[in-house]
Amino acid sequence: MKMIADDLKLLKGMEEDDNSSFKAIYDKYSKALFLYAHNVIKDRAVCEDIIQEIFISLWAKRKTNKITSLKPYLFQAVKFKIFNHFRDNKFSREDLTRLNIIDVSMNVSQKLEYSELDQIIRDHVAKLPKRCRHIFVLSRYHHKTNKEIAEELEISVQAVKNQISKALAFLRNNLQLEEAIAIALILLN
């Protein structure tokens, strides 16, 4: 909770044009966001551009943003930018392999909107067993580490890993081929 309170304080400072608050947010999250993007897009320059765009937007909208939880907001912004990158650029065979998408014959140029993909994923996640779903949501939507989840739920890190693996296997097996691009969004580490 302290982390969320600290973030809200920084957001408030940024809203009041405090450059040091913005720099503190950047210093706190930029490296993790870059690594998150780089796990999918193995192009350093593209990842740097994505992170830069997110922080430029964060600053530009500082007076109108109604962010209540900064970390999930920033990671969701990265997911959105990654999706846009893949939507706007043709997938290479290497990209498809890296994302564990087996059927490369699907039409990746479909004009699916991010919100539609997100809803498809959420619908499938809702079908997971309760405990598995809870752990998956903490991991992928709240961007908590396995250790943080284990401590919060008072279970072992291995139990967390097992539940996440179970969730990912379920999602891989239940997503239809035309939804396979959604895997790119949920498999981000």
Rank of each mutant, 00 (worst) to 15 (best):
residue 136 F to Y: 15
residue 131 R to G: 09
residue 154 E to K: 09
residue 137 V to G: 03
residue 141 Y to I: 00
residue 146 N to G: 14
residue 158 Q to V: 03
residue 175 L to A: 00
residue 163 Q to K: 14
residue 182 A to Y: 03
residue 156 S to F: 01
residue 173 N to V: 00
residue 149 I to H: 05
residue 142 H to K: 14
residue 141 Y to L: 07
residue 164 I to M: 03
residue 176 Q to D: 11
residue 150 A to L: 09
residue 147 K to A: 15
residue 161 K to T: 10
residue 170 F to W: 01
residue 137 V to K: 06
residue 153 L to S: 01
residue 134 H to P: 12
residue 147 K to M: 14
residue 161 K to N: 15
residue 153 L to H: 06
residue 153 L to N: 11
residue 174 N to I: 00
residue 138 L to H: 08
residue 159 A to N: 07
residue 172 R to H: 10
residue 144 K to W: 10
residue 158 Q to M: 06
residue 146 N to T: 04
residue 143 H to S: 11
residue 172 R to G: 13
residue 183 I to K: 13
residue 145 T to V: 02
residue 131 R to C: 02
residue 183 I to T: 07
residue 146 N to L: 01
residue 144 K to G: 04
residue 144 K to M: 15
residue 157 V to D: 12
residue 135 I to A: 10
residue 142 H to D: 14
residue 141 Y to M: 09
residue 160 V to A: 02
residue 140 R to H: 14
residue 151 E to H: 11
residue 137 V to Y: 09
residue 144 K to D: 14
residue 138 L to S: 03
residue 169 A to D: 13
residue 174 N to Q: 08
residue 132 C to D: 14
residue 180 A to R: 06
residue 153 L to I: 00
residue 168 L to W: 02
residue 158 Q to H: 11
residue 167 A to P: 05
residue 143 H to T: 08
residue 167 A to W: 11
residue 137 V to A: 06
